[in-house]
């Protein structure tokens, strides 16, 4: 299940599990998938190249793929471009870090008390459907068009998946596991930290993975729409509006996509390393419980 699918499920309902558990696949089938994916990309590039070179679509709309790929490589070694990417990524990282600290804390509090949860639900249900892009004017008004604005938007839009996954994970803790901790003399706080939190961790981490890709989307959107003072989005805006350079815009778009891929890949590595115990990631497929 892709992150996007998960996110859709998350926004469609609150009471149901906010995400589906991924099925583990063997390394061999993963390699096949990878090869097929690469073949798909090669085919896409080849077609785009043909379409562009043959003149069916003007080169001003669709520059030849070979040229775009060359630009990608050039951009990746251009310091001034990398500075812009760095600006986007730092807003991304700061926003995500704030989101994790705030949402996990609130989620743990709301998730461990039914009363707090039902009390806060109305407020959450009101705030959640507001599209973060709709907050750009407000954010610009209050925070200007620098990093603070981007970070605020990232925090707002990424808080929901992390918050809901944390609450859900906290509700999903096995009561027997909590009783076990209690029977061995652990108090409420200690049980929360040593049983509830680790048990909810796979849910929380899935929320973080969703948040990580949403944060990148929001960071770049904010730069584009709000005309932020720097960042990858701002750079693309300049390349398209003032420079009229579709090859550069395409190249930057591909780089944005690559960033998303790399982030997701790294988070998956972290998940396998630290949360490999969860049922969905066990080599057996978790048939025995």
């Amino acid at each position: 299940m892709t992150v996007q699918e998960k996110e859709r499920r998350l926004s469609s309902t609150t009471s149901a599990p906010p995400f589906g558990r991924r099925r583990t696949r063997s390394t061999a089938s993963r390699r096949t998938t990878l090869l097929r994916g690469a073949a798909g990309f090669a085919a896409l590039f080849a077609i785009a190249e043909l379409v562009s070179r043959s003149g069916i679509v003007s080169e001003t709309f669709l520059p030849p793929t070979s040229l775009v790929l060359l630009r990608v490589v050039e951009l990746l070694v251009t310091p001034s471009f990398l500075v812009e990417v760095g600006a986007t990524l730092s807003a991304w990282a700061i926003g995500l870090a704030i989101c994790i600290v705030v949402s996990v804390t609130i989620g743990v509090l709301l998730g461990s008390s039914r009363a707090a949860y039902s009390g806060s639900r109305a407020v959450i249900e009101f705030l959640r459907p507001i599209p973060s892009v709709a907050l750009i004017p407000l954010a610009m008004l209050v925070l200007g068009n620098d990093a603070e604005m981007k970070i605020a938007l990232i925090v707002f839009s990424t808080s929901w998946p992390v918050l809901f996954n944390t609450i859900y994970g906290m509700h999903d803790v096995d009561p027997i596991a909590k009783l076990t901790a209690k029977s061995f003399g652990h108090g409420r706080l200690s049980t929360l930290l040593t049983v509830s939190l680790p048990s909810a961790m796979p849910f929380i981490f899935t929320g973080i993975r969703i948040a990580a890709s949403v944060a990148l989307i929001v960071a770049i959107s904010a730069e584009l729409l709000a005309g932020a003072s720097n960042g990858l989005g701002r750079w693309m805006l300049d390349a398209s509006a003032t420079g009229n350079r579709p090859d550069l815009v395409f190249a930057a778009t591909i780089i944005a996509g690559l960033l998303g891929l790399i982030i997701n890949f790294l988070l998956q590595l972290i998940e396998r390393r630290f949360l490999g115990w969860q049922t969905a990631l066990r080599p057996t497929g978790g048939a025995s419980k």
């Binding site: 096995d174 027997i176 596991a177 076990t180 680790p198 048990s199 961790m201 115990w277 419980k289």
Partner: peptide
């Protein structure tokens, strides 16, 4: 020692 031992051991 709980009746449901598999649930009382911590999988993490």
């Amino acid at each position: 020692v709980f009746q449901d031992y598999s649930r009382s051991l911590f999988p993490w």
